[in-house]
């Protein structure tokens, strides 16, 4: 089966690893080969968290520069920083809600302005879907559900070998019971945004 390489980038605490886990479990549910790898060094200390998810018949669990089919970013600056993972066909999804790193938040560095950030992504990658995932997460009832919003948007691209139904089922069974409803709502809002 064809190989699909998905890169997810986020700031520590945004739930990147849970999003990756949901996709991995959904693939297991559907019998689709999947391997993932994560870099979460000091995530709780505010660093960047990266997940690579490789679906299909390959052995590697890592995505080299230029080889992501899809890049999903929970935070726009981190999406831009991960642009080296993209090629001219890469489909990029990003939230537009910034979480400025400390230096930028206190005016000691400049956070790139959003229109230029989006232009840079578009100049380099294949396509870009950008929207405020934080707003949708809040609408779903939990600002922490940005990860589920992005999962919804990812499912709507139909580029993943796992179906939206499988992902919904996985959210239902593999995320914390008291968050399932909010998570599913966030997933649908993301799905409708991107569809």
């Amino acid at each position: 089966m064809n190989v699909t390489r998905l890169m997810i980038v986020a700031v520590g605490g945004q739930g990147n690893l849970l999003a990756a886990k949901v996709l991995g479990e959904a693939a297991l549910l559907a019998g689709i080969p999947v391997r993932m790898s994560e870099i979460h060094g000091m995530a709780q200390r505010g660093g960047v968290v990266e997940s690579a998810i490789v679906f299909g018949d390959a052995k590697s669990s890592l995505i080299s520069d230029g080889e992501a089919d899809i890049l999903a970013g929970f935070e726009p600056l981190e999406t831009l920083r991960a642009l080296a993972k993209c090629n001219k066909n890469t489909v990029v999804l990003t939230s537009t809600a910034p979480l400025p790193p400390f230096a930028a938040a206190v005016g000691k560095a400049t956070y790139p302005d959003l229109p230029s950030l989006q232009r840079q992504i578009l100049d380099y990658a294949g396509s870009l879907t950008a929207f405020d995932a934080e707003k949708l997460a809040r609408e779903a009832g939990n600002v922490m559900a940005v990860n589920m919003v992005i999962l919804g948007a990812l499912a709507a691209t139909k580029l993943l070998p796992v179906s939206a139904a499988n992902i919904r089922e996985t959210i239902r069974t593999k995320t914390r019971q008291n968050f399932v409803e909010t998570n599913l709502k966030a997933f649908e809002l993301g799905f409708n945004q991107s569809a």
């Binding site: 700031v11 520590g12 060094g41 000091m42 709780q44 200390r45 505010g46 660093g47 960047v48 080299s64 520069d65 230029g66 080889e67 600056l77 981190e78 831009l80 920083r81 642009l83 080296a84 993972k85 993209c86 090629n87 400025p100 790193p101 400390f102 230096a103 930028a104 560095a109 400049t110 956070y111 790139p112 840079q120 380099y124």
Partner: peptide, 21 residues
Amino acid sequence: ALSGSQYSGQADLPPRPPTLC
């Protein structure tokens, strides 16, 4: 096969180092 990235990178992006909480 696909060659690696031609992306030259963004030297001036504000870094996000881990910090004391």
